[in-house]
Design a protein around this nucleic acid. Structure first.
Lengths: 218, 218
DNA sequence: GTAACCAGAATTGGCGCCAATTTATGATAA
DNA sequence: TTATCATAAATTGGCGCCAATTCTGGTTAC
């Protein structure tokens, strides 16, 4: 009860401060609020997230370990600017991993899983109309997480999530085009269709197209 | 000249202190000096590596992010104890990734690359006789790095290196059996053979066997 | 004899200060 | 007018202190 009370009294103040600074910074990089190449001055971040210096530094160190921000010793940190080659390389890795477990996904699929995936795909659809960029991103993440979970390899789910975070800084802004979003939404449903039909080659084809964000071939 | 002088005067004192604490800790975890489940008390590490408290904490934070050590809030850090399932899952990921780029490795291979790989494989052989566990481990890493580099995907090389670090804490001690080491050495040469012959199916088979550390089938 | 409890010791983890390095600014000389 | 250097401002990054929490050992009550 006391918990409800505090939440009622300060509905957006207390919980905000308790959020991890790393996640907040990650959020702003992923949404493009902090664009690629931007300098991440410690004082600015300290004020922006209303936190202490060590917290900022821990967040910067963690994200530089994940290669999301670049560390220039004695000069500062800046949002990583990824070239086309690295983007392609990361996409290749995702294609190999996700098509590589497609057979297991087909093997392990159940009617309940199909229903869950359809629900998540529909949730993504709805986010196209209302919902922020980040909510949209999260909905997409939830769908793919559930899809990969069918492989039965939870470690792989984590690895793909990490790898995915390395490349989205630019593409998230590309998402703004409505055509691209609607195509992604359609692909989600097509993937569930292929999964339900047990059509392994088609599922692989769709996964590759979806990751590469290539125009879909009828 | 002054650089040479200092190196001459203190050949193993100064450079030792300048080494990153994270690498030192990683080293001790990988070699099994700090066994799985061991508690990593900050004071102990501070003395062991002759460094300051913040350095220790940064190393622990980094390795916990990589899921090499487990963080129990307000209780401490301990070397991650991985169960059989996770070990199998990680092996599966490596098999998918490394066999997934086997075709590119065959396509991109050159006589010079073959020669380099043969050299690295021979270096591994020699480490079987003389050389510490870690030197052996490094030689193995160098071979596989060069092999994967043939895929032309440098990002993948990094990813595999990271993933590999998640599972070796136990197997490194398994390496102590001479039979297993000699088999690995033989497999290295067989992989180069298959690569030279352009035998893709055989290369894939060898990679999978090698990663799974299964007894080789003639 | 066993279990619960309470103080003392030890460990973790948050926080700010200050030195070292780099960048910006302005003055001086060519 | 422009280049160069010196000085000042700002930023990074190393380090130690101290509060909060947890663990340990001994004592007391049942």
């Amino acid at each position: 009860m006391s918990d409800d009370l505090t939440e009622m009294l300060a509905p957006e103040e207390k919980p905000e401060e308790k959020k991890d600074v790393t996640d907040l910074l990650l959020h702003d990089i992923l949404t493009g609020t902090l664009p690629a190449g931007a300098w991440l001055k410690q004082i600015d971040l300290e004020r922006r997230y209303d936190c202490t210096r060590p917290e900022v530094r821990r967040a910067l160190d963690r994200l530089s370990q994940r290669r999301l921000v670049q560390h220039n010793p004695n000069r500062g940190y800046q949002v990583y600017e990824l070239d086309d080659q690295r983007t392609r390389e990361i996409s290749d890795i995702r294609v190999i991993l996700e098509t590589g477990v497609a057979d297991r996904m087909v093997a392990n699929v159940t009617p309940a899983a199909i229903a869950e995936l359809r629900g998540l795909a529909r949730q993504f659809d709805e986010m196209s109309f209302r919902g922020s960029i980040m909510e949209h991103y999260d909905a997409n993440l939830a769908f793919h997480r559930a899809l990969l979970m069918l492989s039965g390899n939870s470690e792989l789910v984590e690895v793909v999530a990490e790898i995915r975070q390395r490349t989205v800084s630019a593409p998230v802004s590309q998402w703004r085009t409505r055509a691209r979003i609607e195509q992604s939404a359609r692909e989600h449903h097509l993937m569930v269709d292929a999964l339900e039909a047990g059509d392994l080659p088609e599922l692989k084809r769709l996964i590759e197209i979806h990751i590469r964000q290539a125009p879909i071939k009828a």
